[in-house]
Amino acid sequence: MNVSVQWEGVYPALLTPFTANDELDLPLFETNLHAQLDAGVHGFIIGGSLGEASTLLNEEKIALLQSALGVAQGRVPVLVNIAEQGTKQAIARAREAEANGADGLMLLPPMRYPADARETVTFFKSVAEETTLPIMIYNNPYDYKIMTTVAMFAELSALPNIQAVKESTRDLTNVTRMRNAFGDRFKLMGGVDTLALEALLLGCDGWVGGLVDAFPQETMAIYDLVKAGQLAEALAIYRWFMPLLELDIHPKLVQYIKLAATATGIGSEYVRAPRLPLVGTEREQVLHVIKTAMANRPVLTTAQ
């Protein structure tokens, strides 16, 4: 029985923990999931950019899905990210996720090939038509070089299971463009940590987070305070959080955020090649950011 996806609240883009032998560390994965649930997150996303999707085997993605479903126990939806080079492969992964109990999908445009607007829309439609699962389109032209425009979403709006957008264009005016064009037809989820509070204030329904993997309580506090209209309290936490949130917009975001999750006791530094763990000055610089923040963690205000 699938859990209904509301496309609201905080959805961690989960890290994929590995052992020293480069195998999935499912016990540590579940430790992180429990920390997220204890903080009150609203859903899980498996195998995104932070989850090192491009290095995961299909059977590993299914193992992560089954582990997350076991922890969630129907309390929050579990989404699987689909990031494939070919339409046929993307359809196969979507069907596989649905068959194994996923509650929804996050869907990226074609990988590696810079598809034009017609090709991108056709790709999204082709996947959506082959699954009954609700879908969030990941709109991130900064990293993936394909912009899903308002005109393209107008075509996609004909498919009822394309329901949400991870808004990672880094152009905050796009939130207003989408609202002006579609009202509430698409749920909008802010997808850039360093713009998260602003995206929520502009009307995003939720936040797909990265540093939530290491700091779930602080992430949830910001979201809850914004939704309660306690903006001064939210801003105080956000300003404290910003040096950490900036770790999310670097090519080594996986290593940086894994180091943060290690520091807070809910992750490890192991990454999968070609990524390598941080060393030397770079590691010390990132650790300094993390340790400074942890030494000054704010007393969290409860939303009223």
Rank of each mutant, 00 (worst) to 15 (best):
A263F: 02
T219H: 03
G267M: 01
A261P: 06
V299K: 10
T194K: 10
R179G: 04
E284W: 03
V271S: 12
G209W: 02
L276N: 15
F215N: 07
L201Y: 02
G190A: 04
A273W: 01
L244W: 00
A236M: 03
K187W: 02
R297D: 04
R239G: 08
N296W: 07
A273I: 06
V279D: 04
V299Y: 01
A293D: 08
R179S: 10
Y223C: 13
V226D: 09
F241P: 00
D213Y: 08
A196E: 03
V279M: 11
M220H: 00
E218N: 05
V289H: 09
K258D: 04
N296M: 06
Q285E: 15
A196G: 08
L188D: 00
M242V: 06
G203N: 09
G267I: 03
T219M: 09
H250G: 11
V208S: 11
Y256G: 13
W240D: 09
H288S: 14
G229D: 02
R272A: 01
P298F: 06
P274T: 01
T292G: 12
A295M: 11
A295H: 07
A228P: 13
M178S: 04
G210L: 12
D184F: 00
Q230K: 13
L276F: 11
A295D: 11
W207C: 05
E246P: 01
V299W: 00
D213N: 15
L287C: 12
V208D: 03
W207G: 04
N296Q: 15
A196R: 02
L276D: 13
S268T: 05
